[in-house]
Computed example of a mutant assay.
Amino acid sequence: MTSQDIGEQSRTIRSVEIALNVIDVLQRRTDVGVTELADELGHSKSTVHSHLRTLEERKMIVRDGNSYRLSLRILDMATYVRDQVGNYEVIEDEVESLAEETGEIAQFGIEEFGRVSYLCKATGDRAVETASRVGTQQPIHSTSLGKSVLAFLPEEERDAIVDGIDFVRVTPNTITSRTELVEELAAIRERGYALDDEENIEGLRCVAAPVRDGNKVLGAISISGPSSRFTESVLHGELADYVQRAANVIELNTKFS
């Protein structure tokens, strides 16, 4: 590869990065114009304007006066991505049923880029709302969904993810070492479900069970709620039973659909 090729490749990658950063900002903020985007991204207004024009031509964003927003094409792309997950309707039905039965928050997550990504979420009638949203990600080692998936991945894949974890303490209960996490994952494999004991959010506990198809881990399903209701006996008793039954339903429909 020549120096010219390397330079051109670097410019192309940088251009894509700027465009994606523009989309990230528009996802977080409303009524954002060229000046605000340029200030936040640290690029000239002319550079940002060029990317905005390109994104607008590709119908990824919409101009509204002097401001920009994401277009509905993003929603179409998100729907397409969601539907690539096998048996999404079965997953959605089980998540909604779990939320209705327990009155709490029920969620389904999958592993992406060494983190847990939320695919589906439903809220029961007595749920305490959390910051998690469909499409967002959380650390894999401090959530019951993440640990549930991680525990049952093939050893080589699991080790690679664990090697890349930045063990940042979020709460006093967050796992902060590889040794502690490896021990926890072994316990999860033995009992068949994972816990988040106020490890990601103080006052919030979760229990999750993996959804598997043979040796493949499709994801995990969880229930989340306040620690005042999610006592030790309830977590390890009826709530663990709930998520394991829901996981079994998804597995059966996956295997025999």
Rank of each mutant, 00 (worst) to 15 (best):
H43A: 09
K216L: 05
V182W: 01
T174I: 02
G164T: 10
L145I: 10
R115W: 04
Q9L: 02
L235S: 08
E184L: 00
I23G: 02
F152I: 12
T231C: 03
D5I: 11
T171A: 10
G203S: 07
R189I: 01
S177G: 08
V62N: 08
T2C: 13
D31H: 15
R53L: 11
A194D: 01
I23E: 07
L153C: 10
L119G: 00
E100L: 06
E8I: 09
L119V: 14
R29Q: 08
T130G: 10
R126S: 10
E202I: 00
G214V: 00
V34H: 07
R82G: 13
Q9H: 04
Y242T: 03
I175F: 02
N215E: 15
V34E: 09
S132H: 05
L41V: 06
H49L: 10
L218T: 07
H236C: 02
I18S: 09
E199K: 02
S177F: 03
R58F: 00
K255F: 06
P210T: 07
D163H: 03
F108T: 15
L119C: 02
I23F: 03
R229A: 10
V149D: 11
Y242Q: 13
L26V: 11
E180L: 09
R245P: 04
G42A: 10
Q84R: 14
S224W: 07
Q9G: 01
E232P: 11
F113Y: 10
Q138S: 15
E40S: 01
C206S: 14
T12E: 06
V134F: 14
L204C: 01
G124T: 09
L41D: 10
G42Y: 13
A99D: 04
G33M: 13
V234M: 06
A127R: 15
I221G: 03
S227E: 06
G109P: 12
K216E: 03
V32F: 04
T254R: 14
L239K: 06
L145K: 11
H49R: 15
V95S: 01
L150C: 00
E180P: 07
E36A: 14
G33C: 13
E100D: 09
A220C: 06
I6N: 00
V243A: 07
G109E: 08
S233M: 08
R229C: 01
L20M: 04
G65V: 11
N248F: 08
V85C: 06
S228H: 04
N253I: 02
V234W: 05
T35E: 12
K45D: 04
G109S: 15
I61T: 08
Y68V: 13
R14Q: 05
E156M: 03
D76H: 08
G42L: 11
T47R: 07
T35K: 13
I61K: 07
V170Y: 08
V16A: 12
G192F: 01
I18A: 09
S222F: 03
